[in-house]
Design a protein around this nucleic acid. Sequence first.
DNA 1: GCACATTCAATTGCGAACAATTAAATGTGA
DNA 2: TCACATTTAATTGTTCGCAATTGAATGTGC
Lengths: 153, 153
Amino acid sequence: MVRKHSAADQPLRLDNQICFAVYSAAHAFNRVYKPLLDRLGLTYPQYLVMLVLWEQDDVPVKDIGEKLFLDSGTLTPLLKRLEAAHLVRRTRSSEDERQVLIALTAQGHALKDKARSVPQSILAASDCSVSELVGMKNEIVALRDRLNAVIGE
Amino acid sequence: MVRKHSAADQPLRLDNQICFAVYSAAHAFNRVYKPLLDRLGLTYPQYLVMLVLWEQDDVPVKDIGEKLFLDSGTLTPLLKRLEAAHLVRRTRSSEDERQVLIALTAQGHALKDKARSVPQSILAASDCSVSELVGMKNEIVALRDRLNAVIGE
DNA sequence: GCACATTCAATTGCGAACAATTAAATGTGA
DNA sequence: TCACATTTAATTGTTCGCAATTGAATGTGC
């Protein structure tokens, strides 16, 4: 009997992999965000950095990295582009000159108002109730945190 | 009364965004996969392409792109790297010379056996039951498909 | 005070990811 | 048949994402 797909192959099937579900959902989100963020002049990772700064201004690069799980190799050039767009300022901390503090400019602050409609548009595109989304979000965050815990070992 | 964080700011809070949960979970998966895939000489996107080919060999670039939601701008250089690693062959279809067919080499086929332990390791890192993961996966896939449906409009 | 380790950002190099364009092959309608 | 549109990969340019390294600033143990 010829079996093209044996039972042992099931774990390797693309459709069975949660990682691919997450990977492809991240790209789908990115494609939905693109036209919305184009109007703000931001990419999605830049938008995430702005979300951090709109919550807390004048923070070290390291803090942004810890919140977004990104390192300086990603953030340094990204922050330079935000600086070139006059949305943030980069200044060395006087207390600890190793740190670079990121602060919003007036333009950076002002952009927050234009960004308020974004989450609403994403919610609409999700075609899903808020409570369902909150439930999924909590599950995914819990999974992410368990994965990150393994990496630190 | 000075309110640093108004109720109107809640939708813009990083921790409230499912997209960031998905985005950061995707990166967490990637970091867990990295040491496992290093032993196979693959990156995560290359691994996804190999998963497709292990299910169905000798497929056009376009079919791989549709399954993985990737375009030729991403796949062409990736497939050239897999070809340089002697895992796949790229040949023009004789029936339709616009198509490039991707076929596994003997090495590419053989790598499947070495890859069988990967899903098990990921499951362990997830620290989660299979049924929970399947449930989450189905929810995420449904969300992804709704997002992709919006893009097509 | 001084060697030493640690912290932090920047840099380099490589591999995605995608928009936009190009070019060749194929399909279609008059 | 022949003009025209469509399909398919490849290419170019920009932006992430991360590993590895560098260099300056800071902390520490003796």
